[in-house]
């Protein structure tokens, strides 16, 4: 049987080849055939999940919630050096210096990445802003959000911090973060679905020792991961509870 693996669409496009290399490494490590399918949007990926076409996923925290609670997915690991943080940025020449200077009618540029949207909307609350008094334009990629800010087509842009830091230096010089989340406990998770659950221990042990050999370490480097860290059910449940408290 060939199992299907996918990665949350908010991954850095520069790591596409890294995920294919990882998939090749993983197939050898656990001696199973795995097909990697990368979806263009969160919407497409959710449809595949709903249709039970995914058995292994590197999921964003928002999707992990539904996968664990509703679909019986089991947490395996997280990237040891990464937590999900969000940045709200403005054009470098914007007069806005902090969140509380924003007012009703603020134009937002955002992707459909649900956890980043959620974190950033929370950070707007001190200014009394919410969905009903802001105008949001949805873009397919973070670089398009940067363009909206540079062209003054948006007042603020929502970014995954990791993605913001990987914008070109020239682009970043023309932007200015006004707030960065410091949540520390929200992160992507590698999850296995019920059909691949019998391989969870093998996958987990392979990932945990990945940094110990030169091939595995090279694969990690291609993903910009330092190492994988085991995640047990209760740790994932805690993060999911946290996401639940933040969801509307």
């Amino acid at each position: 049987m060939t199992y299907n693996f996918t990665v949350s669409p908010d991954f850095n496009p520069g790591h596409i080849s890294g995920w294919f290399i990882f998939n090749t490494w993983l197939q050898r490590a656990i001696n199973e055939e795995i097909h990697l399918e990368l979806y263009n949007s969160a919407h497409e990926q959710r449809k595949a999940i709903a249709d039970d076409q995914v058995e292994l996923i590197y999921a964003n925290p928002y999707d992990a919630t539904a996968l664990v609670r509703d679909k019986g997915f089991i947490p395996v690991a997280q990237a040891g050096n990464k937590t999900d943080e969000a940045i709200i940025a403005v054009n470098q020449e914007s007069p806005i210096l902090n969140i509380e200077q924003l007012s009703g009618g603020t134009r937002i540029s955002s992707t459909d990445d649900p956890d980043v949207r959620m974190m950033c909307m929370i950070m707007l609350e001190p200014a009394g802003l919410n969905k009903s008094n802001t105008i949001t334009t949805q873009r397919d990629a973070y670089i398009l959000i940067a363009k909206d800010l540079l062209k003054n087509d948006a007042d603020i842009g929502f970014f995954l911090e990791e993605t913001y830091s990987e914008l070109s230096e020239m682009t970043r010089k023309q932007l200015r973060p006004i707030v960065r989340s410091q949540i520390h406990v929200i992160h992507h998770l590698l999850l296995v679905g019920p059909q691949l659950a019998h391989k969870k221990d093998k996958i987990q042990s392979s990932l945990l020792s990945m940094a110990d050999d030169s091939k595995g370490a090279g694969v990690l480097k291609s993903l910009d991961f330092e190492r994988w860290v085991a995640v047990e059910q209760e740790e994932a449940e805690f993060m999911i509870d946290l996401m639940d408290t933040l969801a509307e």
Partner: peptide
């Protein structure tokens, strides 16, 4: 679980 965040001055 309790999560607390910054509140608006108006609220």
């Amino acid at each position: 679980t309790s999560v607390r965040r910054r509140a608006s001055r108006t609220k």
